[in-house]
Simulated scan of single mutants.
Amino acid sequence: MKDLGTSKEFLKAQEVEWETVGEGVRRQIMGYDEKILLVKVHFKKGGIGPMHEHHHSQVTYVESGKFELTIGEETKMMEGGDSFYIPPHKMHGAICREEGILIDVFSPIREDFF
């Protein structure tokens, strides 16, 4: 595992660059060390987080919008105020049905985001 260091202790959203990661999907990395990573992901309506899996534990808070979320074989509509947990190596993905923001927390850090 390469040493990515740690983020600054205070991160102002307007000072953190957005990175486009897909059609209608962009993210801000909002804090991390080698054990944990917080990412804000903005989806336009119709934006897709394709089905995938990874070895990280993930917890996500739906800040706003509506998302059709699939974890394994189960699909549910999630909206602002909801949250979900994705165990390591579980296939998952999302389709944005109403523009919104997801707040993702990963442990350990997602090195592939850097």
Results as ranks from 00 to 15, higher is better:
Leu37Asn: 07
Leu38Trp: 14
Glu34Gln: 11
Val59Gln: 15
Met78Ser: 11
Gly46Trp: 05
His89Gly: 09
Val21Glu: 01
Ile101Thr: 15
Phe67Gly: 03
Pro108Gly: 06
Val39Cys: 10
Lys76Arg: 12
Glu63Asn: 08
Gly46Pro: 04
Asp33Tyr: 10
Glu68Trp: 11
Val39Glu: 11
Lys45Asn: 01
Leu69Tyr: 15
Glu9Thr: 03
Phe113Ile: 02
Gly80Pro: 00
Val105Ala: 03
Val16Cys: 02
Ser57Arg: 14
Ser7Gln: 04
Gln14Asp: 05
Lys90Thr: 15
Glu111Tyr: 12
Phe10Asn: 03
Gly100Glu: 08
Glu98Gln: 13
Ser107Thr: 11
Thr6His: 10
Met30Thr: 11
His52Tyr: 08
Glu68Gly: 01
Leu102Gly: 01
Leu37Met: 14
Lys90Asn: 12
Gly93Gln: 09
Lys8Cys: 00
Glu23Ala: 07
Lys12Asn: 03
Pro88Cys: 13
Ser57Ile: 15
Cys96Thr: 05
Leu37Arg: 03
Lys40Asn: 07
Gln14Val: 00
Glu19Met: 05
Gly81Glu: 15
Ile71Trp: 11
Ile48Ser: 04
Gly22Ala: 05
Tyr61Glu: 07
Gly100His: 08
Val16Asn: 00
Pro50Gln: 13
Pro87Val: 13
Val62Lys: 11
Val16Pro: 00
Met77Ser: 09
Val105Trp: 09
Met91Leu: 15
Glu15Asn: 08
His92Phe: 08
